[in-house]
């Protein structure tokens, strides 16, 4: 399985400047790709387009040659930078896992989720603890690609290491494709099989 972005162009309004122009990239299953580049160059926008959250103005996103499914379970799952925004503040954590059918002992064990967290509300957990739930939620059987948009940037280094350690084990065990956005080159080197510099690929900057 592979996900392919073909000549993607995007801007946030018809008269605004292009954020992305003619960007193409491919992520294969089992591959770990790092996406780096300066702030404001459209890394998050590109990831959101590839995950199907935004529609590109030109070009298309293809999953094995076919467009991404518009409805139903999406094989591409995105993990956000701020887990506290990505979890319903009125839900207890147990329901967050149940939402994707991932209320399973093995997943919780693999990601170091403790039992007594399940009865709490999101505001009663720390960012690192919440991020584990976001990862666990995304790891349901239909997932083939995980996109992580600076998912560990706001965590301290120890928690970062823990989360990535757990994440990599799952990604390897399931042979998932991983695309991570980061500013941290060392982290990208450590985790990824290859890195892409958006600065070089984005043709907007060359016009």
């Amino acid at each position: 399985m592979q996900i392919e972005g073909k000549n993607l162009s995007f801007r946030y309004g018809p008269k605004l400047p292009w954020v992305l122009k003619d960007v193409s990239l491919t992520v294969k299953e089992g591959e770990r790709v790092g996406l780096v580049g300066p702030s404001g160059y459209g890394k998050s926008t590109l990831v959101r387009i590839l995950a199907g959250y935004l529609k590109p103005e030109e070009g298309q996103v293809l999953l094995d040659g076919k467009p991404l499914p518009a409805k139903g379970v999406c094989p591409v799952q995105l993990i956000y930078q701020h887990p506290e925004n990505a979890i319903n503040p009125r839900w207890k954590m147990k329901k967050v896992l149940q939402e994707s059918g991932m209320f399973r002992e093995d997943i919780m064990g693999a990601l170091g989720i403790e039992k007594d967290w399940l009865q709490r509300y999101p505001r009663e957990l720390s960012g690192g603890e919440l991020q584990r739930f976001c990862v666990a939620r995304s790891l349901f059987p239909g997932t083939h690609f995980l996109f992580a948009d600076e998912m560990s940037t706001m965590l301290d280094v120890i928690t970062q290491a823990q989360i990535w350690d757990l994440m990599l084990k799952e990604v390897e065990a399931r042979n998932l494709g991983l695309l991570m956005v980061t500013h941290n080159m060392e982290l990208a080197k450590k985790i990824c099989t290859r890195t892409i510099n958006l600065e070089k690929m984005n043709h907007e900057m060359k016009i």
């Binding site: 995950a51 199907g52 995105l78």
Partner: peptide
């Protein structure tokens, strides 16, 4: 909100999201 986007990508219908996410708020 982001958790609504996530819920859509997890394959939940608009009706499910209204009942479980929006109405409790």
């Amino acid at each position: 909100q982001q958790y609504i986007e996530v819920s859509k990508k997890l394959g939940h219908s608009s009706w499910w999201i209204t009942v479980h996410h929006i109405l409790p708020h």
